[in-house]
Design a protein around this nucleic acid. Structure first.
Lengths: 251, 251
DNA sequence: GAGTGGTCTAGACCACTCC
DNA sequence: GAGTGGTCTAGACCACTCT
C-alpha cells in the first residue's frame, strides 16, 4: 500500500488521512457516502475496530455524519449569518421587529417558551447586580431554523423591573423584550456579548440534535441601560457549525 | 436521531454519565485524576473497550485530558479575555502598543513569524477586492500565552499598499501594522469580525497542541478604511477553550 | 434479507510515566 | 517494574436502513 509517512503513524490515522484527503479533493461531495467499515476492512486489510476508529476520527472532526444502517456521509455546512450589530440596533427592535425575526429574514419561529420567576443563580445575580437568591424572571426558548433547533436561549430580568409587563408573557409583543423595556422607561443603550466555544453538554447536544463532533458557541449577552445598569442577561447556546457571528467594531 | 432513552442507555454511556456527574459534584477537582480503565473494568465489570469508550466520551466532551501512562485528569479552563473593541480602538494601536501586547497585558510574544508575497487565494482576493492571483503580502505568526501556543494568525494586505513599509518586516514597529497603515495614510476606521466555531484540522490541533475534543474559534477580521476600502484581512484560529471573546455593541 | 453501523467481549503487544 | 493508556485483532449479537 502507500508509503507510511512515519513509521509510527497508527494505521487508523493513516486511513482517516486518506479519507480526509479524498474529501478535500472533492472526490466525495457534501451529502455523499464515503467508504464504510466493510469497505475499509477489505481495502486496508484491517480489523473492524481499526476501520471504525478511522471513521470515528472524521466524525469527531465534524467532517462526516454517521447514520446507522446507512453509512458515513460528508457533512454540509450551511451558515446562518448572525450580524450582531444590526440585530441589536435600536432602529431594529424599536420598530416592532423582534431580534430573532430579524435573524431569520422574516421567518421567526421558536418553541417551548417557558417563563417563570426563580431565585437568581449565582453567576446571573452577579451580572444583574441583584442579591443571590433574589427574584428574577426567566424566559427560556428554543429557536428553530427550517424546522431544525439551532439555538437555546435563556433570558434573565430583575423580577421587580418587569413585573406585570408583557415580558412576563410568552408573547412579548412587537419588537420583543427590548421594545418592552423601552416602554417601561428603561431602553437598552449598550450590549456586551461574551463568546466562548466548547463542546456541548449531553442535554444541549440532545436539544439541538447535534451530531458528534459539533461544538457549540456559548454567548452571554448583557443589556445595559444608558447609565450602565444591567437590564437583562441572555445566555445562548448555538449550533457551532450553523452560525457565522458577525461583529462590527469602530476604531 | 431522538434518543430512545426509553429503555436502554448503552453501558459505556452510563459509566460516562456517572463520571461526569461526579465531576460536576466536585468529587474530582480540576487537575485531579479520575478512575482509569482498570478501575472501571473492576467496578462495572465490563471489558476494557467498554471502559475505554466511557472515558472517550468525557475526553471528546473536552471535560478531561488523557495522559498516556498516567491517567485521565479533569481539565482546567483558564480563560484569556479578548476584548475586541478595546483591542481595536485607535487609542490603543495609535499609541505604540500592538494589538497583541494589549491582549497579553504587556507580555507580548509570538514566534515563527513568516512573511512573504503570494498570489491571492480566492477567498482573500474576494474580500480585499484584488484580482484572484493578484499579489498580496502574507504575515503569519503563532502567538503564545505563558509559553503555550494559543493562536494562529495570518494577515493579508494588498502588496502594492504596503510595499517598502515596515509591514513587510518581521518587526512592524510600535503600534503594529495598524499604526503603520496610519503612517501610510490609510488608517483603519472600522473592523468586521466573522466568528465561527469548529473542530480543528489536524495541523491546527498540532500547532496549538490541542487536546482531543477541544474546538477552535475561527475569526476572519477585515480592516476597512473610512471610505470602506478593505485594507487587511486577518484569519485567526484560537484555542476555543482558552479564549473569552468580548464584544461591545451600541443599540 | 442483505448490508450497515452500535455495542460488547477477551484476548494481545506496545510506549509511556512514575500514580 | 508496575501501572497506565494506545493500538489492534477476531470474534459476537443487536437495531436500523434500504446505499
Amino acid at each position: 500500500m502507500p508509503e507510511p509517512k512515519s513509521r509510527k503513524t497508527p494505521e487508523y490515522r493513516r486511513i482517516a488521512n486518506d479519507l480526509r484527503a479524498a474529501i478535500d479533493r472533492g472526490e466525495y461531495q457534501p451529502g455523499q457516502r464515503i467508504p464504510g467499515e466493510n469497505d475499509l476492512i477489505r481495502k486496508y486489510e484491517v480489523s473492524r475496530n481499526t476501520a471504525r476508529d478511522a471513521l470515528a476520527v472524521l466524525r469527531h472532526e465534524g467532517l462526516t455524519d454517521t447514520r446507522r444502517g446507512a453509512g458515513n456521509f460528508v457533512r454540509q455546512f450551511k451558515l446562518i449569518p448572525r450580524p450582531a450589530n444590526e440585530r441589536l440596533s435600536r432602529s431594529n427592535w424599536g420598530e416592532g421587529r423582534s431580534i430573532w425575526s430579524a435573524d431569520m429574514q422574516g421567518r421567526p419561529s421558536s418553541e417551548d417558551v417557558t417563563i417563570g420567576e426563580i431565585k437568581a443563580p449565582e453567576r446571573i445575580a452577579g451580572i444583574l447586580g441583584v442579591p443571590v437568591g433574589g427574584r428574577v424572571l426567566r424566559r427560556s426558548r428554543v429557536h428553530l431554523s427550517e424546522g431544525r433547533p439551532v439555538q437555546l436561549s435563556t433570558s434573565y430580568f430583575p423580577a421587580s423591573l418587569v413585573a406585570g409587563s408583557p415580558i412576563t408573557q410568552p408573547d412579548s409583543g412587537p419588537g420583543g423584550v427590548y421594545a418592552r423595556l423601552l416602554d417601561l422607561g428603561h431602553p437598552p443603550a449598550r450590549f456586551r456579548e461574551e463568546v466562548r466555544a466548547r463542546m456541548p453538554l449531553g442535554e444541549e447536544a440532545k436539544a439541538l440534535k447535534l451530531a458528534a463532533g459539533v461544538p457549540v458557541v456559548h454567548i452571554v449577552r448583557t443589556a445595559f441601560e444608558e447609565d450602565g445598569t444591567p437590564l437583562e442577561v441572555n445566555e445562548m447556546v448555538l449550533d457551532g457549525n450553523s452560525y457565522l457571528l458577525q461583529y462590527d467594531i469602530d476604531a
